[in-house]
Write a protein that binds this DNA or RNA. Structure first.
Lengths: 346, 346
DNA sequence: TCATAGAATGAACACGTTTTCAATTCTCGT
DNA sequence: ACGAGAATTGAAAACGTGTTCATTCTATGA
């Protein structure tokens, strides 16, 4: 009966394609799923008809029965923060290539836990969740997201070469910061820096905590006095003000290690434009991330680099492996850092 | 039978909540939908039990029957481009408050049409689509997205005060650039600029075309010679190189109007660090967007501003109105621009 | 007390797909 | 030509929800 009323309104459905191609509705479903048995010429015909009718399987219906939404939730406190936006960009590209889509959610900028958001997000049924919400224990996340598998971004305390933390309970990405920080401190020490300050990121961020901890450790090993800490929150403006305070109220420094590149930009601008100090002659500056802006001539920042592509590839690997083998024990990937030398130390 | 096997694995379902609260499954559905008739104390009980079981209605199932996915597709060529990332950030926040989620897709950076992506996106059933893909006619978009309603970002040719383009066929956001450009050219002219160059954005971008067109028009009206055009693509690096070419190969300029702020940063850095020219003394620079970075001290850019919050509010209004009244004729919102004066003209 | 309207309730259906399972057809070696 | 195993096929069940509709309950007024 639906033969004549060739509905031009609304989506085409598998039933319509089946009717037009004179096959069963099930055959249409199979045509769109590889690894199912269907005579090749039949599949070809169906796909042709589908294209004519502008048909694509409805992912909501598909998700309902298969339990796979092909959505990956990404929680970010601040999309326009440079590192985050670059990671979202690369991640979206990679996920798209694998047939997934990025579902974006914003949480509080202070990096605190946001239960309400997790419950909200759960309703959308993501297959996996990458939590930039940093101070959340993975099992808390798992409790809130029952079906979706969270990926935990882990900063090992002791960064031994083979620090697997053996048998992690959850999938995680280990970020090792020692190499980059060691190279950075060595460079500063080589240029005679004595009083090194740390310009922190958001207090509750685990990344920030790990960076400060590693800096202290490396400086102690090299016989340097502990760093003075100036309180930032990963933003340009906070870094700008904190730097001014460090020199006007505090005792200053001859080198500043910032928790992220954007913060380093604030430090540099405060030094040059407000305090009339020269970078790197009077004060040396090192950042963290190596975002795209760091090579811009006005900053030309020496910084500790994550390889973004490598990081994204690792995340995608974790997601795919978990979906392929849902009951496997925790997977983990490890990411290293290294120093990129530019013009703010010298 | 499912009473005893209190499945701790997988999502809680409405059936489980109903069983535990000794009510029917329909009552659970009603408890989560306002405007349905249900005894208050019963609703309260159900919501309490639901919270205990960590239950949220499955949006895939809900979408299947109601035809509303509560997903808004956003197509971007480049997430980490500053303007885009700030818009995505604000939009996600606003949509989240209205019960929607942002579905992110990346397309080609040259702003060309991407049919494959549209078909891919359609599978996810977005309720609405905001197309940053700029050279796509709205009816083409509509054909590919049957159910989702696209929002067209429109740059009216003649920017009369009431240029509604009366009765648009599709929902659209009109962006008026005349006011900002007029103020910018007036400022440049006031400082005696004679040879104004335009550093373009991506060739296929409609925003870029509209900006160049408006600049030509305003300059002609004020008796200025047409601008020299330097070819960029909205990126820092392209702007940097194009500026060098403009002075080394071409005839230079005493003022440069960039198609976007990031491009203006490239212009400024090329002028200062490569060409050893002073900004604003030797060459004046104006940008477009007023992104957060524009007030950073190293650039301190004079620029034509969109009000981002206003823009996002307008977009959300368009989305909500269309979903409330699906068969209404095309809605439209209008957005104006104005100049923000900082330190790169003077 | 009774009639009546309105609120509250639950059974059944619908949404568009994948998956299961049994039935049918095909392929190939003897 | 025949049988066995593999490939192909379609009917029916399932996924978790919102909606319709007929029924039951409650409160109000005469």
């Amino acid at each position: 009966m639906t033969e004549s009323e060739q509905a031009p309104r609304g989506r085409a459905t598998a039933e319509m394609v089946a009717a037009r191609a004179k096959v069963s509705r099930v055959a249409v479903s199979r045509a769109f799923n590889p690894h199912t048995s269907l005579k090749p010429e039949k599949r070809e015909l169906i796909l042709k008809v589908a294209q004519e009718l502008n048909y694509t399987p409805d992912r909501a219906a598909r998700a309902l029965v298969s339990g796979r939404s092909h959505l990956v939730g990404v929680i970010v406190p601040d999309v326009c923060s440079h590192w985050e936006s670059q990671e979202i960009d690369a991640l979206t590209t990679a996920l798209q290539a694998e047939g997934f889509a990025t579902l974006l959610f914003k949480t509080r900028t202070d990096y605190s836990m946001d239960e309400q958001l997790l419950a909200y997000m759960r309703g959308f049924n993501p297959d996996s969740v990458i939590a930039f919400v940093e101070n959340v224990k993975p099992h808390t996340l798992a409790r809130f997201l029952d079906r979706a598998v969270p990926i935990y971004i882990h900063y090992p305390q002791a960064e031994l070469a083979d620090d697997a933390g053996d048998e992690p309970l959850h999938d995680r990405l280990n970020v090792l910061q020692r190499d980059g920080v060691e190279q950075a401190v060595a460079l500063l020490q080589g240029f005679g820096a004595k009083r090194i300050a740390y310009l922190s990121g958001a207090e509750k961020s685990r990344a920030n905590g790990a960076r400060e901890r590693m800096l202290r450790q490396v400086m102690a090993e090299r016989g340097l006095a502990p760093p003075v800490v100036a309180g930032g929150d990963f933003s340009y403006d906070a870094a700008y003000q904190a730097t001014i305070d460090l020199f006007r109220v505090g005792e200053g420094a001859d080198a500043i290690f910032a928790a992220n590149d954007v913060g380093a930009f604030g430090v540099i601008d405060a030094l040059r434009h407000e305090l009339k100090l020269r970078v790197p002659e009077d004060v040396k500056v090192i950042g963290f991330d190596d975002i795209a802006q760091s090579h811009w001539k006005s900053y030309n920042l020496t910084t500790v680099k994550f390889d973004l592509d490598e990081r994204v590839r690792a995340l995608v690997r974790l997601i795919l492996r978990r979906l392929t083998t849902p009951d496997a024990p925790g997977f983990q990937e490890t990411l290293n850092t290294r120093l990129v030398v530019r013009g703010t130390v010298g």
